[in-house]
Design a protein around this nucleic acid. Structure first.
Lengths: 213, 213
DNA sequence: CGATTGGCTATTGTCGACAATCGGGTCCAA
DNA sequence: TTGGACCCGATTGTCGACAATAGCCAATCG
């Protein structure tokens, strides 16, 4: 839906910052549609994990505390560990070379994005690599739940690209890619968990610093 | 919301079987409310994973194939493994005796339910024990995502209680409870995974048998 | 002076009517 | 016979108006 897309983009690009209160009436006027249309869009965004409803009061752009960041990265760790197990197992058993190719392609895009230096491109390529692995698992519900986590993480990555260090990103993802493409199940699971632990600590620290400022 | 609760109950108790097509107009007449109210209820149930929307066509009660069952149990396994890790770690490090108590209580209810023999009570106690562990993890997003999986599993458990064997249920849960209450992290994780593997195979087999009938 | 009650405003919750869209069936023509 | 265009019923999508509710501020009472 068009109006949901507009709002999603605004939130994900940081134009509508976390904690912003959204009212149906104002949004309806602003976008030139009726409240019913806004309402379905808000329901959609709620399902995507981007906003929250407060009965008889309004809607709020999801806002993350340090504890929320901890939740996101512990959850993401578990979901990526499952995906890594499934993909690595498939690569190990079958000769699924198409899977390895797609992972290598996504990793290649990340490498050239880091070489380029464009923050948005780097972030997109980073998320793209992770999403490629998730999609390869052939697990709709896993993909859906992962997408919810990813979108919430993106809210913060977008509004504060303090978590992107172009010089280290490629190296941090190499263990994940290599263990997967050779079908080393145990190492792939471990690599996914380790990666999320590192990233999670960074986001928690970042949010704690913001909270203190 | 009242109307969402009525529909949820109907679906979870099997009165509205999987695959049923729901139309806003008929539901509105049937429950004596307007379409707008039904619509928000449907959006709520969609977020809960109980129904699906088909644009310009209607809404359908979630229907599970054998592959869907595989998805549910692999996902549940990962989520319960995470919860088990968190809870067992907490019990090990702190003297969180309240946690052990709540787990033992839930296990006690399961035992007496199995002794009683009432299917619905057994199912509720079974889900209750798992939910207790999830809740103890202190992880809102984990609880929410787990709830989605649980509700979808419940759709089938309710409509075909072939998966409940009162004589073995208690024994199947004992490793989970014992490893958690003594704070054995690794064993707790393993117990959670093993349990889900068993249950998943049962549901897959059940669905495959239905598909063949 | 503090707490409680009452009303007021802003916002969501609910409603019925109309517009847009989808799917299937029919009719016609090649 | 078969392919395709068209029409029609059913259903959701959208709209504006009214009802219900929460939160706030002030007035009142102890």
């Amino acid at each position: 839906m068009q109006t949901a897309s507009a709002l999603r983009q605004g939130i994900l690009e940081g134009k509508i910052p976390p904690g912003t209160r959204l009212t149906e009436i104002r949004m309806a006027e602003q976008l030139g549609v009726s409240r019913a249309t806004i309402r379905t869009a808000f329901h959609q965004l709620t399902q995507e994990g981007l906003i929250d409803q407060i009965p008889y009061t309004g809607w709020m752009v999801m806002s993350l505390s340090a504890h929320d960041a901890w939740e996101l990265y512990t959850l993401r760790s578990s979901l990526e560990a499952l995906a890594s197990r499934l993909v690595a197992t498939e690569i190990r058993s079958g000769g699924a070379s198409a899977m390895s190719t797609r992972i290598d392609d996504a990793f290649g895009k990340l490498k050239s994005a880091c070489a380029g230096g464009n923050r948005k491109q780097i972030a997109d390529a980073d998320f793209g690599l992770h999403r490629t692995i998730i999609d390869l698992a052939g697990h709709r519900r896993l993909a859906e739940q992962y997408a919810q986590v990813e979108r919430q993480v993106r809210i913060y990555i977008a509004s504060s690209d303090a978590l992107l260090d172009p010089t280290t990103i490629v190296g941090q993802h190499r263990p994940i890619v290599e263990s997967l493409t050779v079908g080393d199940v145990q190492r792939a699971i471990r690599a996914a968990i380790d990666h999320n632990e590192q990233e999670g600590e960074k986001l928690v620290a970042h949010l704690a610093a913001l909270g203190a400022h």
